[in-house]
Protein backbone atom coordinates (compact mmCIF):
# COMPACT_ATOMS: atom_id res chain seq x y z
CA UNK A 1 0.00 0.00 0.00
CA UNK A 2 2.99 2.28 0.57
CA UNK A 3 5.92 1.96 -1.73
CA UNK A 4 9.03 4.11 -1.67
CA UNK A 5 11.36 3.83 -4.65
CA UNK A 6 14.89 5.15 -5.00
CA UNK A 7 14.29 8.19 -2.78
CA UNK A 8 17.03 10.82 -2.76
CA UNK A 9 17.29 13.99 -0.74
CA UNK A 10 20.07 16.50 -0.53
CA UNK A 11 20.32 19.89 1.10
CA UNK A 12 22.72 22.10 -0.86
CA UNK A 13 25.21 19.38 -1.62
CA UNK A 14 24.70 17.53 1.65
CA UNK A 15 23.39 14.11 0.65
CA UNK A 16 21.07 12.83 3.35
CA UNK A 17 19.15 10.13 1.47
CA UNK A 18 21.00 8.18 -1.18
CA UNK A 19 18.39 6.02 -2.83
CA UNK A 20 16.04 4.53 -0.29
CA UNK A 21 13.32 2.05 -1.14
CA UNK A 22 10.94 -0.10 0.88
CA UNK A 23 7.35 -1.24 1.10
CA UNK A 24 4.79 -1.17 3.88
CA UNK A 25 1.72 -3.40 3.75
CA UNK A 26 -1.71 -2.37 4.96
CA UNK A 27 -1.95 -2.57 8.75
CA UNK A 28 1.77 -3.15 9.15
CA UNK A 29 3.95 -1.47 11.70
CA UNK A 30 7.44 -0.66 10.49
CA UNK A 31 10.19 0.58 12.77
CA UNK A 32 13.10 2.54 11.32
CA UNK A 33 16.22 2.51 13.47
CA UNK A 34 19.78 3.67 13.03
CA UNK A 35 22.41 6.07 14.37
CA UNK A 36 21.78 9.84 14.49
CA UNK A 37 22.26 11.57 11.18
CA UNK A 38 21.49 8.45 9.17
CA UNK A 39 18.52 10.14 7.46
CA UNK A 40 15.66 8.44 9.30
CA UNK A 41 13.76 11.63 10.12
CA UNK A 42 14.36 13.10 6.67
CA UNK A 43 12.99 9.94 5.11
CA UNK A 44 9.85 10.22 7.22
CA UNK A 45 9.43 13.91 6.40
CA UNK A 46 9.81 13.15 2.70
CA UNK A 47 6.92 10.70 2.85
CA UNK A 48 4.39 13.41 3.77
CA UNK A 49 6.30 15.98 1.72
CA UNK A 50 7.27 18.24 4.62
CA UNK A 51 10.59 17.93 2.80
CA UNK A 52 10.55 17.83 -0.96
CA UNK A 53 12.46 14.77 -2.13
CA UNK A 54 15.21 15.50 -4.65
CA UNK A 55 14.50 12.36 -6.64
CA UNK A 56 12.50 9.17 -6.46
CA UNK A 57 8.93 8.03 -6.16
CA UNK A 58 6.38 7.59 -3.41
CA UNK A 59 3.24 5.49 -3.83
CA UNK A 60 0.34 5.77 -1.43
CA UNK A 61 -2.29 3.32 -2.66
CA UNK A 62 -3.37 4.67 -6.06
CA UNK A 63 -1.57 7.97 -5.51
CA UNK A 64 1.88 8.13 -7.12
CA UNK A 65 4.20 11.07 -6.50
CA UNK A 66 7.32 11.67 -8.53
CA UNK A 67 9.86 13.96 -6.89
CA UNK A 68 10.00 16.22 -9.92
CA UNK A 69 6.28 16.73 -10.43
CA UNK A 70 4.68 17.71 -7.15
CA UNK A 71 1.64 19.93 -7.47
CA UNK A 72 -0.07 21.82 -4.66
CA UNK A 73 -3.06 19.57 -5.04
CA UNK A 74 -0.92 16.44 -4.58
CA UNK A 75 0.76 17.98 -1.57
CA UNK A 76 -2.57 18.42 0.19
CA UNK A 77 -3.76 14.96 -0.89
CA UNK A 78 -0.67 13.29 0.53
CA UNK A 79 -0.80 15.22 3.78
CA UNK A 80 -4.50 14.53 4.18
CA UNK A 81 -3.93 10.81 3.87
CA UNK A 82 -0.97 10.69 6.27
CA UNK A 83 -0.73 11.63 9.92
CA UNK A 84 2.41 12.71 11.70
CA UNK A 85 3.56 12.65 15.31
CA UNK A 86 6.53 14.90 15.95
CA UNK A 87 9.39 14.58 18.38
CA UNK A 88 8.47 17.91 20.00
CA UNK A 89 4.72 17.20 19.92
CA UNK A 90 4.01 20.50 18.08
CA UNK A 91 0.49 20.78 19.42
CA UNK A 92 -1.22 23.99 18.33
CA UNK A 93 -0.34 26.29 21.24
CA UNK A 94 -3.44 28.45 20.83
CA UNK A 95 -5.87 25.52 20.96
CA UNK A 96 -7.00 23.29 23.81
CA UNK A 97 -6.34 19.54 23.76
CA UNK A 98 -9.73 18.76 22.28
CA UNK A 99 -9.54 21.63 19.78
CA UNK A 100 -6.16 20.34 18.61
CA UNK A 101 -7.80 17.07 17.61
CA UNK A 102 -10.90 18.74 16.15
CA UNK A 103 -8.94 21.33 14.14
CA UNK A 104 -8.30 19.28 11.01
CA UNK A 105 -11.81 17.83 11.11
CA UNK A 106 -13.15 21.38 10.92
CA UNK A 107 -10.71 22.86 8.40
CA UNK A 108 -9.94 19.86 6.22
CA UNK A 109 -12.98 17.62 6.51
CA UNK A 110 -15.33 20.63 6.75
CA UNK A 111 -17.31 19.19 9.64
CA UNK A 112 -19.35 21.40 11.91
CA UNK A 113 -17.67 22.38 15.14
CA UNK A 114 -20.02 20.29 17.27
CA UNK A 115 -19.55 17.15 15.13
CA UNK A 116 -15.79 17.64 15.15
CA UNK A 117 -15.71 18.12 18.91
CA UNK A 118 -17.78 14.97 19.44
CA UNK A 119 -15.35 12.95 17.32
CA UNK A 120 -12.40 14.55 19.06
CA UNK A 121 -13.82 13.53 22.41
CA UNK A 122 -13.94 9.89 21.36
CA UNK A 123 -10.28 10.08 20.34
CA UNK A 124 -9.33 11.85 23.54
CA UNK A 125 -10.94 9.00 25.47
CA UNK A 126 -8.94 6.54 23.43
CA UNK A 127 -5.67 8.09 24.59
CA UNK A 128 -7.01 8.34 28.13
CA UNK A 129 -7.14 12.12 28.43
CA UNK A 130 -10.86 12.85 28.66
CA UNK A 131 -10.22 14.91 31.81
CA UNK A 132 -7.72 17.16 30.00
CA UNK A 133 -10.01 18.26 27.16
CA UNK A 134 -9.91 21.95 28.00
CA UNK A 135 -6.24 22.14 28.87
CA UNK A 136 -3.92 24.09 26.61
CA UNK A 137 -0.69 22.32 25.61
CA UNK A 138 1.28 24.46 28.07
CA UNK A 139 -0.79 22.94 30.87
CA UNK A 140 -0.06 19.33 29.89
CA UNK A 141 2.93 17.11 30.63
CA UNK A 142 5.11 16.00 27.72
CA UNK A 143 3.55 12.55 27.77
CA UNK A 144 0.05 13.99 27.72
CA UNK A 145 0.93 16.35 24.88
CA UNK A 146 2.28 13.46 22.83
CA UNK A 147 -0.85 11.40 23.46
CA UNK A 148 -2.97 14.32 22.25
CA UNK A 149 -0.70 14.55 19.21
CA UNK A 150 -1.34 10.87 18.46
CA UNK A 151 -5.09 11.46 18.74
CA UNK A 152 -4.73 14.44 16.41
CA UNK A 153 -2.90 12.28 13.87
CA UNK A 154 -5.63 9.63 14.09
CA UNK A 155 -8.44 12.14 13.61
CA UNK A 156 -8.30 12.24 9.81
CA UNK A 157 -8.26 8.46 9.69
CA UNK A 158 -5.04 8.51 7.65
CA UNK A 159 -3.67 5.66 5.55
CA UNK A 160 -0.48 5.75 7.55
CA UNK A 161 0.77 7.48 10.69
CA UNK A 162 4.39 8.61 10.72
CA UNK A 163 6.07 8.79 14.11
CA UNK A 164 9.25 10.87 14.26
CA UNK A 165 11.05 9.76 17.43
CA UNK A 166 7.87 10.14 19.47
CA UNK A 167 9.53 9.52 22.84
CA UNK A 168 12.94 11.17 22.41
CA UNK A 169 11.95 14.46 24.05
CA UNK A 170 10.18 12.81 26.98
CA UNK A 171 11.31 12.30 30.55
CA UNK A 172 12.07 8.60 31.05
CA UNK A 173 9.10 8.05 33.35
CA UNK A 174 6.71 9.39 30.70
CA UNK A 175 7.98 7.22 27.85
CA UNK A 176 5.90 4.18 28.74
CA UNK A 177 2.53 5.94 28.72
CA UNK A 178 3.18 7.11 25.15
CA UNK A 179 4.47 3.72 24.01
CA UNK A 180 1.35 2.12 25.53
CA UNK A 181 -0.85 4.34 23.37
CA UNK A 182 1.16 3.52 20.25
CA UNK A 183 0.87 -0.21 21.05
CA UNK A 184 -2.88 0.21 21.39
CA UNK A 185 -3.07 1.91 18.00
CA UNK A 186 -0.89 -0.80 16.44
CA UNK A 187 -3.30 -3.48 17.67
CA UNK A 188 -6.07 -1.80 15.70
CA UNK A 189 -4.05 -2.45 12.54
CA UNK A 190 -3.42 1.15 11.71
CA UNK A 191 -0.47 1.31 9.32
CA UNK A 192 2.47 2.96 11.06
CA UNK A 193 6.04 3.92 10.31
CA UNK A 194 7.97 4.67 13.48
CA UNK A 195 11.42 6.21 13.67
CA UNK A 196 12.65 5.32 17.12
CA UNK A 197 15.59 4.81 19.43
CA UNK A 198 13.58 2.47 21.64
CA UNK A 199 14.87 -0.81 20.27
CA UNK A 200 13.00 -2.91 22.76
CA UNK A 201 9.79 -1.20 21.78
CA UNK A 202 10.63 -1.71 18.11
CA UNK A 203 11.09 -5.41 18.75
CA UNK A 204 7.77 -5.65 20.60
CA UNK A 205 5.53 -3.62 18.39
CA UNK A 206 6.97 -3.67 14.87
CA UNK A 207 6.23 -6.26 12.21
CA UNK A 208 9.22 -5.15 10.21
CA UNK A 209 12.43 -3.35 11.11
CA UNK A 210 14.52 -1.21 8.80
CA UNK A 211 18.07 -0.33 9.74
CA UNK A 212 19.50 2.81 8.14
CA UNK A 213 22.98 4.25 8.11
CA UNK A 214 24.48 7.09 6.11
CA UNK A 215 21.41 7.70 3.95
CA UNK A 216 20.93 4.09 2.91
CA UNK A 217 18.93 1.12 4.09
CA UNK A 218 21.47 -1.41 5.33
CA UNK A 219 19.10 -4.15 6.30
CA UNK A 220 15.39 -4.81 6.54
CA UNK A 221 13.67 -7.86 7.90
CA UNK A 222 10.82 -9.07 10.05
CA UNK A 223 11.30 -7.81 13.59
CA UNK A 224 11.93 -11.27 15.01
CA UNK A 225 14.55 -12.20 12.40
CA UNK A 226 16.16 -8.76 12.50
CA UNK A 227 16.94 -8.87 16.20
CA UNK A 228 17.67 -12.61 16.35
CA UNK A 229 19.86 -12.93 13.27
CA UNK A 230 21.15 -9.61 12.01
CA UNK A 231 22.95 -10.27 8.73
CA UNK A 232 25.01 -7.17 8.06
CA UNK A 233 28.14 -6.31 9.97
CA UNK A 234 27.01 -2.74 10.65
CA UNK A 235 23.67 -3.92 12.03
CA UNK A 236 25.41 -6.32 14.36
CA UNK A 237 27.67 -3.57 15.65
CA UNK A 238 24.75 -1.21 16.18
CA UNK A 239 22.74 -3.81 18.07
CA UNK A 240 25.78 -4.81 20.11
CA UNK A 241 26.26 -1.25 21.27
CA UNK A 242 22.66 -1.20 22.31
CA UNK A 243 22.83 -4.35 24.39
CA UNK A 244 26.04 -3.18 26.03
CA UNK A 245 24.42 0.12 26.85
CA UNK A 246 21.45 -1.45 28.48
CA UNK A 247 23.79 -3.54 30.59
CA UNK A 248 25.17 -0.34 32.08
CA UNK A 249 21.70 0.74 33.04
CA UNK A 250 21.13 -2.53 34.87
Amino acid sequence: MIEINNLHKHFKGNYVLKGVGFEVGKGETVAIIGPSGSGKSTLLRCINLLETPSDGEIKLDELTIHAHHITKEMLLKVRRSTGMVFQNYNLFANKTAIENIAEALITVKKKTRSDAMAEAEVLLNKVGLQNRAKHYPSGLSGGEQQRVAIARALALNPKVILFDEPTSALDPELVQEVLQVIRKVAKEHVTMIIVTHELEFARDVADKVIFMDDGRIIEQNSAVEFFKNPKEERTKKFLEKFTQQSMYYI
Binding site: L76, R79, F86, N90, A93, E103, A104, T107, A153
Partner: peptide, 14 residues
Protein backbone atom coordinates in the same frame (compact mmCIF):
# COMPACT_ATOMS: atom_id res chain seq x y z
CA UNK B 1 7.73 28.11 16.28
CA UNK B 2 8.32 26.44 12.92
CA UNK B 3 6.87 23.24 14.36
CA UNK B 4 3.46 24.90 14.51
CA UNK B 5 3.49 25.43 10.75
CA UNK B 6 4.72 21.90 10.10
CA UNK B 7 2.02 20.47 12.36
CA UNK B 8 -0.70 22.37 10.53
CA UNK B 9 0.68 21.21 7.17
CA UNK B 10 0.94 17.63 8.44
CA UNK B 11 -2.83 17.50 9.02
CA UNK B 12 -3.44 18.80 5.51
CA UNK B 13 -4.23 22.43 6.19
CA UNK B 14 -3.57 24.93 3.39
Amino acid sequence: DRGQIEASYSVGMT
